[in-house]
Design a protein around this nucleic acid. Structure first.
Lengths: 147, 147
DNA sequence: CGGGATCCTCCGGGATACTG
DNA sequence: CAGTATCCCGGAGGATCCCG
């Protein structure tokens, strides 16, 4: 996300499959996912979309994040134009991060995914249990219960 | 994705921030992202959504993917109930993968992200260039051009 | 308070070779 | 044809210390 410059903007994208028209959609999604991926981007986007937030405030609200990753993720979001960073040169430094309109739009789009997730969460869990139950039952063969 | 069991289903999710009501949405999104992340999931979903596809067919269509990652990603998508795997026990083995209705719904939701990406791609690139241009110009100070 | 610099760990994913 | 197994590397992300 930071130490290695993935250089998405300049050269060939990680997926060459953007040739067919239908696959262009996939590439766009991949672009978005690239920006929003990382454990913390969405959490930060969420908080800052509710209103301006300070650094320490974010550190508390996005629970579990380290200072390092908070900084890095904030920098990347700022770089992508999803956050604006406002510095108040007061005696105790004060920095506020705010989501841009573009970020709010993104969050709206993410709600579509949220809807899908909520609708199918149980279905997915069932599918997983089904798959795992059918694949792993080497030692747990207790036919007494099954019959 | 495979070697380490992330165990999303059983224990505390990687983000503890699911306490506030607004943050539940983020957790759902994170769930989806977890399933669809990885370089190849979306590409595979894309192809299989167009119709049943065989292993080697996918290997060709999703250009750049390795046989290993194709297998792994297929297994995970199947496990999540996003793909169905059909084996034809013919002399040369034949396996077909098909997207489930749930996967098709997911793909529709992803189109929202696609739309966002296409609408704001230029804006993001501009923001990046802006950010990079303001941060890195240590040696490239050519005021002759600027003035 | 709001970071930057450094070290280290873990795992996603590529390359390659073998199998039924 | 459709996988499986093994080795290996890069980069995301945590922990810790330091700085203005």
């Amino acid at each position: 996300m930071s130490q290695g410059n993935t250089d998405v903007t300049t050269e060939v994208s990680p997926v060459r499959q953007c040739e067919t028209p239908a696959a262009q959609a996939a590439c766009s999604v991949l672009e978005v996912l690239g920006r929003v991926s990382g454990k913390w981007s969405i959490g930060i986007l969420l908080v800052t979309t509710q209103g301006p937030a300070r650094f320490t405030e974010l550190e508390r609200q996005v629970k579990g994040i380290s200072r390092r990753m908070l900084t890095l993720t904030l920098r990347n979001l700022e770089r992508d134009g999803l956050l604006t960073r406002t510095v108040y040169p007061t005696v105790p430094p004060k920095v506020e991060y705010t989501a841009t309109p573009m970020a709010r739009e993104l969050y709206d789009s993410l709600l579509a995914l949220t809807g899908w997730a909520e609708r199918h969460l149980h279905e997915i869990d069932r599918a997983r249990a089904d798959y795992d139950g059918a694949a792993a039952p080497e030692a747990v063969r207790t036919p007494a219960l099954a019959g």
